[in-house]
Amino acid sequence: MISKRVRHAGLSLLAIMALAACGKQAKPVAEAGPPDLSKVTLVLGDQVNFTRTKAEAAGVLEGTPYKIQWASFQGAAPLFEAVRSGDVDTAPAADTPVLAAAAGGAPIKLIAAAVSPTAATGVAILVPPGSPIKTVADLKGRTVIVSSARGSVAQYVLFGALREAGLTEHDLTIGFMLPGDASVAFSSGKIEAWATFGTYQAAAELHGARVLRDGVGIYSGTGLIAASDKALADPGKRAALADVLQRLARANDWVIQHPTEYARVFAKLTGLPDDVVALVLKREHPQLVPVDAHIVEQLQKIADTFYEAKLFPVRVDAAKLADTDIFKLP
Rank of each mutant, 00 (worst) to 15 (best):
V6Y: 05
H8K: 13
L13Y: 05
L13N: 01
L14E: 06
A15K: 12
G23T: 12
P28V: 13
P28T: 12
V29F: 04
G33W: 00
L37R: 10
V40S: 01
V43S: 07
N49H: 13
N49Y: 14
G59N: 08
V60N: 08
E62F: 06
K67G: 10
I68N: 08
Q69W: 07
Q74N: 14
L79S: 11
E81P: 10
A82C: 12
A82S: 14
V83D: 03
G86H: 12
D87N: 14
V88I: 15
T90N: 12
A94E: 06
D95M: 13
V98N: 02
V98C: 01
V98R: 03
A106W: 05
I108N: 00
K109Q: 13
L110K: 03
I111H: 08
V115N: 10
T118V: 12
T121Y: 07
T121G: 07
T121R: 11
V123F: 12
A124V: 13
L126I: 09
P129T: 14
I133H: 02
I133W: 00
K134L: 08
V136H: 04
V146T: 05
V146S: 02
A149W: 05
R150V: 03
G160L: 10
A161C: 09
G166F: 09
L178G: 14
G180D: 13
G180S: 04
V184I: 15
S187D: 14
S187Q: 15
K190L: 12
I191G: 01
A193V: 08
A193L: 02
G198P: 06
G198I: 04
Q201L: 15
Q201H: 08
V211F: 05
G217F: 07
S220M: 07
I225N: 02
D229N: 11
K230S: 13
P235E: 12
R238T: 07
L248A: 03
A249K: 10
A251Q: 08
I256F: 11
Q257T: 11
E261I: 11
Y262M: 15
K268V: 01
L269F: 04
D275H: 13
D275N: 15
H285S: 14
H285M: 13
P286G: 11
Q287R: 15
A293D: 15
I295P: 09
I302L: 11
D304G: 03
A309T: 01
V316E: 01
L321D: 03
A322D: 06
A322Q: 05
L329S: 11
P330D: 06
P330E: 07
